[in-house]
Amino acid sequence: MTAASIRVTDLRKTYQVPEREGGLRAAAGSIFRRSTKSVPAVAGITFDVSPGEIVGFLGPNGAGKTTTLKMLSGLLYPTSGEATALGHVPWRRETDFLRRMTLIMGQRNQLAWDIPVIDSFELNRAIYGVSRAEYNVRLDELVELLDVGDLVRKPVRNLSLGERMKCEIAGSLLHRPEMLFLDEPTIGLDVTMQRRIRSFIAEYNARTGATTLLTSHYMGDVEALCRRVIVIHHGSLLYDGDLTGLVERFAPRKTISIDLEPDQPALEPGVLAGLAGGPDAVVQHGAERVTLRVPRSETAAVTTRLLGRVAVRDLVVEEPPIDEVIDLVFAAGPSDAAERAETAAAQPVA
């Protein structure tokens, strides 16, 4: 058994945020009395990540994903709790740790704005102490994989968002980090570019075995890359496990769509409800098309009953789209969420 690459125990981060009412009176009052509010961004999370894993962090805006990533990459000190990454306490920012990892932020650039990309790459080569020979090999490889051959001689300010992102990624990987923190790496990019970056991340992981933590708003990123997802909401861990498990837990129903043969007597609503297991299960009832949402465990029985009763032209059983599942997770009230989190915690993690 290999030791975990990342180990997080009860990690917390609380921000002190100045607070006052709007308006002139409150502004004048705040000269003499400042009030601040504690905002818990990360409220005690615990998890491990094994070497080589790609883990997706999911959560709405302000859930604590980025704060967690920043603590694990060493940018922020936590308020309390412990974490190790590659055997180091990240926020001590020891050279050995910083040399072996990278943080890529989709909304921030690390490359110097006004000079050709390649000059920034050269600077990174010196900072990370990469030998000339290794640098040349890696640069060729990254240039080819990301298709940035024509771009590296241009100043960063002349690049499009997608081009810039590809160069950012190349520059961040020249030292061949063993650990990648990716914060919204595909934000604002078109679908083709998103796909390209996804496949690149997968390729890099396969080639180097780098442990990868990724946050994204795009489910496509997570579906394509992460077998395991961690869902954070209001700073707490709601779910930690594989993606299919997430769907099963939070979306306990499947959708059955049926196209009916036209030449048959109309189906009475009561009859259909009986077949589906209750009127609540009927989502749509048309003359030629019926949509039902039924509990996972009853899918087979309902399907059999339907096929025995009506003439069916086509029948599809589907998981709800993952975006919808996520909506369901986040739409759940805090108590409901906590309850689910407890259930989730009781489950063995994949």
């Binding site: 006004d114 000059d119 920034s120 050269e122 600077l123 080569r125 010196a126 900072i127 102490g129």
Partner: peptide, 20 residues
């Protein structure tokens, strides 16, 4: 490494200053 960093930074910075 430090010397190399300064040399690289020097080159990048010269390029930057000449850009403006």
């Amino acid at each position: 490494r430090l010397r190399a960093v300064y040399a690289a930074k020097f080159r990048a910075e010269i390029a930057l200053q000449f850009a403006y």
